[in-house]
Amino acid sequence: MIEKIIYKKPDSLTDVNFSYCPGCGHSTVHKIIAEVIDELALRENTIAVAPVGCAVFAYNFWDFDVTEAPHGRTPAVATAIKRVLPDRLVFSYQGDGDLASIGMAEIVHTANRGENITVIFINNTNYGMTGGQLAPTTLLNQKTTTSPFGRDAKNYGYPFKMLEFLSPLEGVKYLERVKVTDAASVVKTKNAIKKGFSYQLQNIGFSMIEVLSSCPANWRKEPLDSNKWIEEEISKVYPVGKIKDIK
C-alpha cells in the first residue's frame, strides 16, 4: 500500500494546541491564514498584529512574526509596521469588540487612509474572552451577559455592519464577508483571505475580510448548533458575499 499525504497541518502553525474552545471559529481562521501563508510562501515575509481578546494568544500558534497591540489599536500598529517595511505582508487580526468598539477610530482612519494592509475581522457577535458581553455586532434580542434581557435598540443601539460602513471610503479597495460553517465556506474564506493578501502584495490598498465566526461557549450552544445559528440568524443580519472589490 502506498500512502500519499494530501492534507496536513500547515507549516506556519506551531505544534502548540489552540487555546480556543471546541468548535471556535478563531481556530479555523488561524488555520486557513497559515495555509494561505504557506501557499504564498510568505512565512518569512509576514508580520501579524494580534488584538486583545481571545486571539491575543495568536502568537503562540503562528510560526511567523507576530506582535500585539493595545485594545483596538491594532490597525495603527499594523500601519506603522507596513510603512516601515513596505515589502512585507502585514495583516491585523481583530475581533468585533476590538475592531468595532474600542478600536472604531483606528479602523476607520486606517481604512480611509487606504493603508496597504489586510484586516481579518472576526465577528462572533460578542466579547468572547471576557465572558460573552454585548458587542456592537450583537444581534437585536440576542442575550449576552451585559444584555441579559436581550439587546433592545433603545438601550443598546443596533448591530454594527462594519463592511457596509467602511465601503464608501475611497481608500478601501476590497471588502468581503465570509463564514466558516462547513468545508465549502471554509474554502471560500481561504480564497478571500488569499485575495486580500495578494492585493496587498500588488499594492492595491486596504482590504478587510469579515468572518462570521462561532463562539459556542458564550452562546451556550454546541459547535454544530452554533454553526446552524450562523446560517439561520447571523447571516441574515450580516449577509455573506463581496461588498466591494476595486481592482
Binding site: S19, Y20, C21, C54, F57, G128, M129, A217, N218
Partner: peptide, 8 residues
C-alpha cells in the same frame, strides 16, 4: 478566571 471558557 482563565482565558479559555471550555475545556481549559
Amino acid at each position: 478566571y482563565g482565558a479559555e471558557k471550555r475545556g481549559g
